Amino acid sequence: MPTDMRALQDFEEEDKLQIQMNDVITIIEGRAEHYWWRGQNRRTLRVGQFPRHVVTSVAGLSAQDISQPLKHSFIHTGHGDTDPHRSWGHADRIDR
């Protein structure tokens, strides 16, 4: 089942999907680690690529979107965000 996302901002770039804030975008291809996603703008019905950071979940975050804490630990290993300037830490290793 395709996922719908809501635009957080306008996006206009040549040869890319044109998006206005609050447009709903149906995701065709997109992985969290990829910058460019492919989707269909439900307002215009056009299909194209757009940067992942301009959209967010229509439904908001659920418990499944939040990682579980490390067993027997209070260590917060990192924080991921669609804005790379607000991300920190490394989930694959823990600083001593």
Rank of each mutant, 00 (worst) to 15 (best):
M1P: 08
P2V: 10
P2C: 04
T3E: 14
D4F: 05
D4L: 07
D4H: 07
M5D: 00
M5Q: 03
R6I: 15
A7I: 04
A7F: 05
L8A: 11
L8M: 10
Q9N: 07
D10M: 05
D10C: 04
D10S: 05
F11T: 01
F11A: 03
E12G: 06
E13H: 08
E13P: 04
E13D: 13
D15A: 08
D15S: 12
D15G: 03
K16V: 02
K16A: 07
K16W: 05
L17R: 05
N22A: 06
D23S: 06
V24C: 03
V24Y: 04
V24N: 01
T26H: 05
T26I: 02
I27K: 02
I27N: 03
I28D: 02
I28F: 04
I28P: 00
E29T: 07
G30F: 08
G30E: 03
R31W: 09
R31L: 13
E33V: 07
E33Y: 10
E33K: 11
H34C: 07
Y35G: 01
Y35L: 11
W36D: 10
W36G: 00
W37S: 00
W37G: 00
W37L: 01
G39Q: 00
Q40G: 03
N41Y: 09
N41R: 03
N41E: 06
R42C: 06
T44W: 06
L45W: 10
L45T: 06
L45F: 08
R46S: 08
R46N: 06
V47T: 12
V47C: 04
V47K: 11
Q49I: 02
Q49R: 08
Q49K: 09
F50S: 00
P51Q: 09
R52Y: 05
H53Y: 15
V55Q: 01
T56W: 02
T56G: 09
T56I: 13
S57C: 03
V58Y: 07
A59Q: 10
A59L: 08
L61C: 10
L61V: 06
L61K: 09
S62T: 14
S62V: 02
A63G: 11
D65T: 04
D65R: 06
D65V: 04
D65H: 15
I66C: 09
I66R: 12
S67T: 08
S67F: 10
Q68F: 11
Q68P: 12
P69M: 09
P69H: 11
L70H: 13
L70I: 15
K71I: 13
K71S: 11
H72G: 12
H72F: 11
H72T: 12
S73R: 02
I75H: 15
H76W: 00
H76S: 01
T77N: 14
G78T: 14
G78C: 11
G78F: 10
H79Y: 15
G80H: 10
T82D: 14
T82R: 12
T82Y: 09
H85N: 15
R86V: 04
S87A: 15
S87F: 02
W88G: 05
W88C: 14
G89W: 01
G89F: 01
G89L: 02
H90V: 15
A91E: 09
A91W: 13
D92P: 03
R93S: 15
R93I: 05
I94L: 14
I94R: 15
D95M: 13
D95F: 11
R96A: 13
R96C: 10
